[in-house]
Design a protein around this nucleic acid. Structure first.
Lengths: 205, 205, 205, 205
DNA sequence: TATGAATGAGTCTTCATTCAT
DNA sequence: CATGAATGAAGACTCATTCAT
């Protein structure tokens, strides 16, 4: 459908503008110039600057959530470890595949309407909850060492977010060898989380 | 000096306003109401909204940098471990001691002038460099296991930042038992970073 | 003719929309939604929002003017009285029969293009002239008491307009017993206008 | 106070602009040009276009209400007649003394927010109530003939409004001999309202 | 130094109208 | 004839900054 492709065109332009300039510094003017449409046309597809921003994020958050699966505890240690690994890899890949949106999600926080900030907040809240649950599960099946699951869930999330952010900012002198990054971050977290007995057999890198 | 105290008064008001509302939603009006001065008076002490914001951050960054000391490698393993520990503890304490500024530093990123964003960027860049150096040093003296110092430096920073952020947002169900938080995060990082031999004797928590 | 019926359809929708929301608050969108046609189709039949509004009013004004007949002075006092009566009744009935257009005609005045306001103005001007002429005639044949025909013509018109307006707004607690309303208003005006001798035999209500 | 006089200045300009062009056609630009101030200055004194319009009207309505006094029935027929007369004269004078605001009050009706229209509505509602009460009182003390007070109250109001409107529009060929106008309209209404016995002695004009 | 009234560039949003299909 | 996506001029409102007192 034509209307849908026009909508996409605007969304793409907006995505680029928002991540380049941030929500506040981004103007409708920037967006419509970026996709070469008239001012009115924009409002044919989105009813406000805020709405298109939210659309962008909600879509992205959905992508992220699809990448994170609740761990199935019935499949043995190896399986669980693999699932944890997959979750982290999944999120990281989604981030790297959407550098522009990631830029937005990771950076923006305060300043939009309260309602909006809360939305982002609750997204991260859910992410942390998921990690917390995974850690608890890991503990129960004897994979994860004793730790404060809530606090460490935040650490795990943060250790990934920050790396992603630096990769995207090209502040990391790596030729975007993503596998290497994933390996390093996973290794870092596995060592931090697993019980010593398991780590014994863990390959030193 | 009277002038200096007036300046402080404005800075304090601005600090509170900025962290409560974020840079963009904060108006000069909010600031001058908060410290009960006239509009014109504000511009007697700061030449723009941006300038006072920057002043605030530069000051805070200085505080943070004072808390992070380059590790002295000549003092033996124990000493080095303690220094790493002190560095992490120091940053974390500084964050928690300045919740308002931390809120700003951690949240805001894109959207101000390019120049400003770069300033924040370079602050974090330096922080990462410092951590990277510490890790390298740790490796040389046999404290730290083999790892990609650049990537892991980001992870270390992130694992701390995120926890701080959640503590400040009261999203963490702890009665602000800061020591516990510090212990957990340090433990997490020590296990992630140190060579296995050292970890052997590491007390399980 | 098909074209004509489509035109009517649009006019009807517009009439309803305009009277419900007033000229300014009414959008082309409202009108085309009301008659379920495409945007462009509207402009096939009317060249602007203003034009359709004017068409509506001109049509209505014609209806009103048809109800008001110049009084035939040759038919004796009784006949003349009856004609006056008929005129007033006629206008009032036309108003009540077209509540939507009446709402517009009575309420809107300033704000459209100058040209339009003048058109409405001149309509009322003609109405007043007609009443003025009727009053003069009434005076000549001894039916109407001495009075300033111009001023009183306005009063007569106003005394009717206001009642109509309140009837339409349902601000009048009558079950739309229109005959009663007509009687009251006519009685009011007859007493105000006729020579005392005639009023002597006028039935007290 | 300076601020107060600036406020007045803006109110005056707005009054003129609104009555010349109507609420919708009037722009903030028109108003600020009319009193030669900057755009922002306007918003220093009024928080929206609607607010200043409302201020204008509320003030005027207050003036009008001050001119209309509830009739004191204890003072005898002559006194009551005089009071009715005073009320009508009062309102009419207020109208003529404020031609610009009157233009607005009499013409505008539909199109602003619902809330606003209701405000105007209720003002006229109160006016009608007042007249209705006066008529009832007149009936009780034997001054006013039998009539439907609600309907006729509207007629009385309308007979005045319309005349005022035409006077203000200079559509009435009188050299603004206001006394004459008042006399005519009062005469018209007295004849329409009073009991025949009282009218007997009423001077023919 | 302090004041606060004034400024005006900048931004979002609406909607009557056009035109390619 | 009909469609409906596209247009862009216009208008309300904000807020950092200035400046006369």
């Amino acid at each position: 459908m034509l209307k849908e492709s026009r909508r996409r065109q605007i969304l793409d332009a907006a995505k680029s503008v928002f991540s380049k300039r941030g929500y506040h510094a981004a103007n409708i003017s920037h967006i419509i110039e970026a996709c070469d449409i008239a001012r009115g046309t924009f409002y044919l597809y989105f009813k406000s600057k805020r709405e298109i921003f939210e659309t962008l994020l909600v879509d992205f958050v959905r992508v992220l959530q699809d990448r994170v699966r609740r761990v199935d505890e019935t499949v043995g240690q190896e399986g669980i470890a693999q699932q944890l690994r997959d979750n982290v890899t999944g999120v990281l890949n989604a981030f790297v595949a959407n550098p522009e949106l990631t830029q937005i999600v990771l950076n923006e926080a305060v300043g939009l309407d309260k309602g909006f900030d809360e939305k982002l907040d609750s997204f991260y809240g859910e992410l942390i909850d998921l990690i917390t649950q995974s850690l608890k599960l890991g503990r129960e099946v004897g994979l994860v060492r004793p730790l404060d699951t809530q606090i460490i869930a935040a650490s795990v999330l943060g250790s990934i977010k920050e790396v992603v952010q630096r990769v995207l900012k090209n502040r990391l002198d790596l030729d975007l060898d993503l596998d290497h990054v994933v390996d390093e971050v996973l290794d870092y977290n596995m060592r931090a989380l697993l019980v010593p007995e398991l780590l014994a057999g863990w390959p030193s890198r």
